[in-house]
């Protein structure tokens, strides 16, 4: 594991250069440039806000638009990192056939690219916080750790998915479908406190309630989004009870996914 991180450090310039290339070619001949990157969370925020005006979703005494936008930030980052990551190896087939460097550079590059776009969204979130007169507390220092954790989750999916995608292109098709379903299973549209209240306080699912809540928090995004909102908007420390089931799952899956990727890697150039 240490060796892996070390080799990634060696390739940091390559990752930076490739990410920079991705950004440049995506936004080069467009007038609005990189601000297209924030269009997706903004549109989703507007839609959710509109939907909420019909169905009524609790928002923990916070303005709903900023609550859902703060949820969309890590979510969109995760979703796009994962789907770009899965396609990253196949879309760089030319390079894979011509030159060797550790192939994990590609999923990581996809993620770093999205990190730049995330930064732009952060500017927007900051503007919204100013508008709603919200001050970040000291707990906002948790943000880098939360983002890092999100990156790990996205990579776990990317490594496995990218390797599969080299052999069966079905992966790149199936993943977006799966991820858009997962969004409803994550506290993006609604806060985690709502799930918490329904299942743990009201025991809405009877005897299954506690297990269901654990299952829900097994989705790492549940903990991530909740913590993100807590440290930034609510001025609270992260809720570790919501974080640790997902964290456990990721810590188990990441090595498996990485080893799988490295095993498959040796045949990429032949199969792709």
């Amino acid at each position: 594991m240490i060796k892996t991180v070390k080799s990634l450090y060696t390739y940091r310039e390559l990752i930076a250069a490739l990410a920079w290339k991705n950004i440049i070619i995506r936004y080069k001949q467009s007038y609005l440039g990189i601000f297209w990157a924030v269009l997706k969370p903004i549109m989703l925020m507007l839609i959710f806000t509109l939907v909420r005006s019909f169905v009524g979703i609790e928002s923990d005494d916070l303005p709903y638009p900023i609550l859902t936008f703060a949820a969309l930030l890590p979510w969109v980052f995760f979703q796009e990192s994962a789907s770009e990551g899965v396609g990253s190896v196949t879309s760089n087939a030319v390079l894979i056939k011509k030159i060797y460097f550790p192939r994990e550079v590609f999923p990581i590059t996809a993620m770093v690219t999205k990190l730049v776009e995330l930064t732009i969204s952060f500017v927007l979130l900051a503007a919204m916080m100013v508008y709603y007169k919200m001050m970040p507390s000291i707990y906002a220092l948790w943000i880098p750790a939360i983002i890092f954790y999100t990156m790990i989750v996205a990579l776990t999916i990317s490594f496995f998915g990218a390797a599969i995608n080299v052999y069966y292109r079905d992966m790149a098709q199936a993943l977006p479908v799966f991820l858009s379903l997962l969004m409803y299973g994550s506290p993006v549209m609604y806060p985690l406190s709502l799930v918490h209240k329904k299942l743990l306080v009201e025991q809405a699912a009877g005897v299954w309630s506690n297990d269901l809540y654990r299952l829900y928090t097994l989705n790492p995004l549940a903990g991530i989004i909740d913590s993100f909102q807590r440290v930034l908007l609510k001025g609270l420390p992260p809720d570790f009870n919501a974080l640790y089931p997902g964290l456990m799952l990721v810590l188990v899956l990441l090595p498996i996914s990485y080893v799988f990727f490295k095993r498959a890697e040796s045949w990429f150039a032949d199969v792709i």
Binding site: E13, L14, A17, L18, I24, I25, K97, K98, I99, F101
Partner: peptide, 30 residues
Amino acid sequence: PLIEVGAGVNPEMTGRENIFLNGAILGIPK
């Protein structure tokens, strides 16, 4: 490996940008 020079050249980028990109791909420090 100078296998087929120009494999990493990206058409959208300028010549100068490509020098840096390809340099990185070939592992030349910036």
